[in-house]
Each structure stands twice: as C-alpha cells, then as structure tokens.
Design a protein around this nucleic acid. Structure first.
Lengths: 188, 188
DNA sequence: CGCCGAGTTGAACTGAATCAAGAAACGTGG
DNA sequence: CCACGTTTCTTGATTCAGTTCAACTCGGCG
C-alpha cells in the first residue's frame, strides 16, 4: 500500500523496524479524481500528504482570482505548512490536477509518532530543511526578476512541470497573467 | 556568554543537562561592527548563527544592484539555508547593520551534535519548521500583490523592522526601487 | 456538429522603473 | 560644535514592462 512513502522516508534517513511497522499502521491512502480538492481554505490542515502518483497544485484566491502557489507531483510531500504546523485555518486550497493517489498521516498521530519514536525527529528535521531550502529558492526566483527570467528559471529547474501544468496556472504562479506568459512563450 | 542562545533553544524544547554542557562547549561568540560581512557570497556557509543583540540583513547582487533578502534581529537564527545545508557556495551575503553580537556553531560540530545527542533533532526539526513557515509567508506576501500591499503587510507584521532598516533595503526586499517606496510612504 | 475551456494575438492603458536633480541627515575631522 | 563631504531620501518628468479588455483560434468532447 504505502510502500512508496516508507521507501521515501527510508531514503531520507534509515528507520528502525518498529518505526516502520508503526508507520504502516498509521499511514492512510486515498485516491482523488481530477479537480477534487484535498484541502479547502478555511479548514485547519490536519494531514501531511505524500503523493504516490498524480499531480496537484496549491492555490489561494485574491480579489476573485485564483493564484497558484505551487505544484506537487510524485514523491512530493505536501503540507500546507502554516496551517499544519501552527494549527490556524488554511488560506490555501490544494486541488488535484490529474487522478492522484495520496498517502497521508494525521497531525495528532504524527505528533504521537515523534513522541514514541524520537529517532523520527531526524526524518522530520531533514524533510523540513529540504522544503525550507526549496521555499527560499522560490523566494529568490520571485524577487526582483523580470517575467521572462522567472519563467526560464522555472523551465530550467522544473522542465517536466512546464509540460504538465496548464499555462494559466503557471502564469499565476509566476505572478503574471496568462496573456503575458503566452507572449513570452511565443517569442521563442 | 552564550546563555541567550541556550535559553532560546531551551524555549524551543527542553534540553538535557549533558546536551546543554556540550552546547556551551561548542558555541562560539563574536562581535561584528557595523557594515562588516558575516558571510560573503561565494563562500560555503560553515556556521549557523544566532543574534544575541544587533541587526543584520542578507542580500545578494543582481546586475550590480544589491537586493535585500531578509533582515535579522535579536534572537533570530541565521542560516544561509541553501549553502549551510547543501554545502554549495552561497549566493548571499550577510551584512551587519548595527554593532552585533553573534553566537555561532560550526557545521561539522552541529552534525556531530545531532549524532551524539539524537534528542537535539527535535530542536532542529522545530526550528527548521518555524523558519519554513516564515519563508512561505514571505512568498505569499511577495506573490501577486501590489507594491503598496506588500509594504503594508510588512509594516503590520514587522513594525519594528520598518523603524530600524533603511528605506533602500526595505525597498529592495519588497522587490521595488527606493523611489517607489518613498512615494508610497509619503502618500499617507 | 456545435459548444466550451484553454490558449493566442492585438490595442490601449497603467503602475512601477528609470533618469535626474534637490533636500535632508549623518559623520568625521578641524 | 560647526563646516563639509557623503550618503540617504524625496520629488518630478519620462519611459516601458506587464495588465486589461476584447476578439479570435484551436482542440476536445457530449
């Protein structure tokens, strides 16, 4: 079932056998179909998700427009960080863009896991660090670059994303409107 | 000496006595004077820093311009994440804006510490998570808001920062030029 | 076949950048 | 403590990248 997630975690740092067993117990699996929402804004994010297969995006709405915050694909961990860790209502939604199989762990069970298996804190630390680095990178990309630079940075770093996501979502992620992105793309 | 840092870490999550002792051994302290660079771009960041007192900013240069990435004050942990964790050359600089007292821990010693005191992984996890949340928040603020909205978001969230940092640094952080920020400020 | 969502293209408009010139604040040395 | 140079901030005029609004094309799918 959830082998892919356990393998992934093993890859982060080795896990003891009892920890693996416990993980197998608490990991749940769910299949979402295209356009379903995994998380709706206004809810507190109670789960940490892991994509086994599929494709999703997080987005929020501003002045009626829908703005993509990031994309997530196979082997990505999804947390709406601010909500999951600080227990406030999420201002983001997570929407499935293709049929997607997801493994997830409940917030309380995860806390319990950290308590019962202190070694798992290492996994948590390494994962948090990894995603922190990615977040800072996105910030770097965002700040003070032209639309075109931002686009090609994304193209180089995540070429598969460009093929998979639709123009309007990429555009709003880059902080520009779809017409502008369309023009950038047609330039070449 | 480094009491403030140990207190801070205790506050994150309690530390055992041997761990505290070990920390006291490996924490170093240094005083930087205004305009000094703690970290220069092109170097690998070998230390994790903690500001006991003072004020600093991280910045990078793009097309000859200097762009502020973030500010750091008392009780802030500074890591140039990408470089410290992934051991690549930093593209950022850290510059002290006021005379600043800093505690720091060497990368290798920190790794060793995680090994010798697995409990410390919890501290690491919580800190990484905390800074991850802040990073995502900055991203949210950055994306798809007008110059004015970005500025007032910052004013509300970090009022003391506005008083302490100079306009040109705030402007480049917000991704706009100082003339524009000056106009926004004079509007009110 | 015809509708609908997604993407492209065009023309007019606008928020922010750029260039330029002063005013204020800061600090250093006499 | 004042004078002078340097740095920081403000204000104005012009330019331009990216937005907005609107019309059109293309490709699927019922």
């Amino acid at each position: 079932m959830c082998v892919s997630l356990i393998n992934y975690l093993q890859h982060v740092t080795p896990l003891s056998e009892p920890l693996r067993d416990k993980l197998e117990q608490i990991i749940r699996t769910k299949i979402f179909t295209k356009k379903e929402l995994i998380l709706k804004e206004g809810e507190v994010s109670n789960y940490i998700y892991f994509i086994e297969s599929g494709f999703a995006r997080s987005f929020y709405t501003k002045d009626g427009k829908d703005i993509t915050a990031w994309f997530m694909a196979e082997n990505d961990v999804i947390i709406f960080v601010a909500s999951f860790f600080t227990r406030v209502k999420s201002y983001e939604n997570i929407e499935v863009l293709e049929n997607t199989t997801i493994h997830y762990i409940d917030h309380n069970e995860l806390e319990q896991l950290y308590n019962d298996f202190p070694e798992f804190n290492k996994t948590g630390r390494l994962l948090a660090t990894h995603y922190y680095v990615l977040s800072e990178e996105r910030l770097y990309n965002m700040r003070r670059q032209t639309a075109e630079e931002r686009y090609y940075f994304l193209v180089n770093k995540y070429p598969q994303l460009i093929l998979r996501a639709q123009v309007s979502h990429i555009a709003s992620y880059l902080g520009l409107n779809l017409e502008t992105l369309s023009r950038i793309r047609s330039k070449k």
